[in-house]
Write a protein that binds this DNA or RNA. Structure first.
Length: 604
DNA sequence: ACGCTCGCATCAGGTGGGAAACGG
DNA sequence: CCGTTTCCCACCTGATGCGAGCGT
């Protein structure tokens, strides 16, 4: 069944006093009562998220709520009761069975699987003025907690999203690419939190790649609507941990694996079970817990959920869209073996490259990773990158119409929502930002006149570092896992002034964390810094520093060693992490991606 | 002598492609 | 029959272990 209402009765029962405290996912505990929270208050608005907390919130936070439009959120079956606006954010947690070992055993009800959107704050990717903070999702957190989440590798996600992201699922599990990587701010530095990702159905349809585009093909299987036992949650292995810890650096979910093997009994903590040819939406959950990892459900405001529509994807067992395949090959280091002319592109002197860019002269300042900005491959890959805008904007091949969102999603409105989101916020955003949002590639590849492109660069920088967190090159953005190990080797000095990336406004650097700590220690309580202020700061810095960002990259190339610049601070400046690893530097060659793309499109 | 750094080799694991197998 | 899934392959990345070299 589609669950919603059917399950609501179960959830409607009042909370059991004995269940006031329940384990967080990370520590696990079966607590059926927890599910009660999901449908305590009937229906919610269809088109707007109006969390109950909004009335208690600072108006500025409340303003972050914008009209909800279809497509960017998880699917809520018509028959399913939408979770009430009054539903506390904490209700997004699965009702039970939440330990890493059992989380997969999905105790989620169908209602939870499909109808949880209302309890989850969905923010369009282009909030505010559509600047660097555009990919920051503001939570509906209460007075004591107002987390801000930033999708670090959003530019990359946007690239995939433009073509309708596909994720391979295998029996043994396949990593996501791009993977989810977040920066978090606004948490209490001393409080403990569990951070986990949940993947839910994005719509009720079964999808098929036909005629070069994704089309719906019947309804999603019932089993995928919540009755299957598959795990839908991946708990960050560092959970639980302090807010300071989570805010210190990027939170990477690079080891999250997707599988279609419901019966898998091993590695359930790393696996999320999905169904092929269904569309899914990852969501980030932040749950305040005790030091033991126990969540205090007395507070409705201690759980927050964040959804980034651009991370939506269709699970497949084999890639359908060649554009997606090429993007994966071009950006995923593990797929380098499939890149065309790899050797010639990466090892040959620029002048000797077999596939020189026809627009090298101009591209040098249109594409940051261009010839003048030899940068680490990892940055390049993750970042705005090497992909020539020509691929999408040359006269021969515009945005692929056969399979892009533009063509495939207009039918259901999904793409419309995605594309017009910024326009809906016209009040906050500038026309420029709207334009950029509507044409991500323009922004990413256009000249320095376009702040978004530069911003993306900075953002990507941070992301790039987090791509393979275990790598020494990931430095401060090192994801979970080897983060601690690597920290031994890095210094904490920042080579430059605060970066123009969202992180600047994100209060994410250590200094600010320290300040926040002091603030809290002093008893001032919640972090006062206004997000809007931060946003404004970021905006002001964006353009001003856009050129500097490129300049820094250049300097990093031949300048003094920047290894010292490596820092634990998340979203470290990309340029500061110049690698001396030849295997990477070869990728920094400007037309690598371009060559690959030209090859791809001109030599079918 | 001890500790540290660096370079190299090895191995585990991740990647997409392609063919074969499967199933409706 | 056709679409989907599974398996194997070659290629690549990244972690790890080991030994050599160097400085204290």
């Amino acid at each position: 069944m589609l669950g919603g209402e059917g399950e609501s009765n179960t959830y409607a029962s009042s909370k059991d006093a004995a269940d006031e405290r329940r384990k967080s996912p990370a520590v696990d505990v079966d607590d059926p009562a927890a599910s009660n929270r999901f449908t305590e208050h009937g229906m919610a608005s269809d088109r707007y998220y109006i969390p109950s907390t909004i009335s208690k919130q600072n108006p500025e936070t409340a303003c972050s709520f914008i009209p909800y439009t279809p497509g960017g959120t998880v699917y809520t079956p018509s028959s399913a009761a939408r979770y009430p606006s009054s539903l506390h954010l904490g209700s997004v947690l699965p009702p039970a069975g939440f330990s890493p070992s059992t989380a997969g055993r999905s105790h989620f009800s169908p209602a939870y699987q499909l109808g949880q959107s209302a309890g989850c704050a969905l923010y369009p990717p282009y909030t505010g003025s559509g600047s660097a903070l555009g990919n920051m999702a503001l939570p509906t957190g209460g007075p004591g907690m107002r987390a801000q989440v930033y999708l670090c590798n959003r530019p990359l996600w946007l690239k995939f999203h433009r073509h309708q992201t596909e994720m391979i699922i295998t029996k043994q599990g396949r990593r996501m690419f791009p993977f989810l990587s977040f920066n978090i701010a606004g948490l209490s530095v001393t409080a403990h939190y569990n951070v986990f990702v949940e993947v839910v159905l994005a719509d009720p349809n079964h999808w098929r790649f036909q005629g070069g585009k994704w089309v719906t093909c019947g309804k999603a299987d019932n089993s995928s609507q919540g009755t299957d036992p598959g795990n839908k949650v991946y708990i960050h292995p560092e959970s639980p941990n302090t807010g300071a810890h989570w805010m210190r650096q990027e939170i990477s979910f690079s080891k999250l694996k997707l599988t279609n093997n419901k019966g898998t009994s091993h590695n359930t903590s790393q696996m999320i079970v999905l169904q092929s040819l269904h569309k899914y939406q990852p969501r980030l959950h932040i749950v305040e817990v005790t030091e033991d990892g126990v969540e205090d459900i007395n507070s409705d405001l201690k759980t927050q959920c964040f959804t980034f529509p651009e991370t939506q994807f269709i699970a497949v067992t084999a890639y359908q869209n060649t554009d997606i395949t090429q993007l994966k090959i071009d950006h995923n280091p593990f797929a380098k073996g499939f890149r065309d002319n790899y050797d010639s592109m990466y090892t040959a002197p620029e002048g000797d490259r077999l596939t020189p860019s026809p627009t090298d002269s101009t591209r040098a300042h249109q594409i940051v990773p261009g010839t003048r900005y030899t940068m680490q491959p990892i940055f390049q890959d993750q970042f705005v990158n090497n992909l020539p805008q020509n691929r999408f904007y040359n006269s021969e091949r515009a945005v692929p119409q056969t399979n892009s969102l533009l063509s495939s999603q207009t039918e259901d409105g999904a793409s419309q929502r995605w594309l017009v989101a910024s326009m809906q916020q016209g009040g906050n955003g500038t026309s420029a930002s709207n334009k950029l949002d509507l044409t991500p590639y323009d922004g990413e590849y256009s000249s320095s006149l376009l702040p978004y492109g530069i911003k993306s660069l900075s953002m990507q920088t941070s992301h790039a570092l987090s791509y393979y967190p275990d790598s020494p090159f990931t430095t401060m953005s090192a994801g979970w896992g080897s983060r601690a190990a690597y920290q031994r080797k890095v210094t904490h000095g920042l080579p430059w002034s605060p970066r123009p990336s969202p992180t600047t406004a994100f209060q994410e650097d250590s200094d600010k964390v320290k300040a926040q700590i002091e603030e809290e220690v002093n008893g001032s309580g919640a972090l006062i810094t206004s997000w809007t202020e931060s946003q404004a700061a970021a905006l002001s810095l964006d353009k001003a520093d856009s050129y500097l960002t490129c300049k820094r990259r250049r300097l990093s190339l031949n300048g003094p060693s920047t290894e010292d610049s490596q820092s634990n601070t998340k979203c470290e400046d990309l340029a500061s992490v110049t690698t001396n690893n030849s295997s990477y530097s070869k990728e920094a060659l400007p037309s690598k991606g371009m060559a690959a793309y030209y090859s791809f499109y001109t030599n079918p």
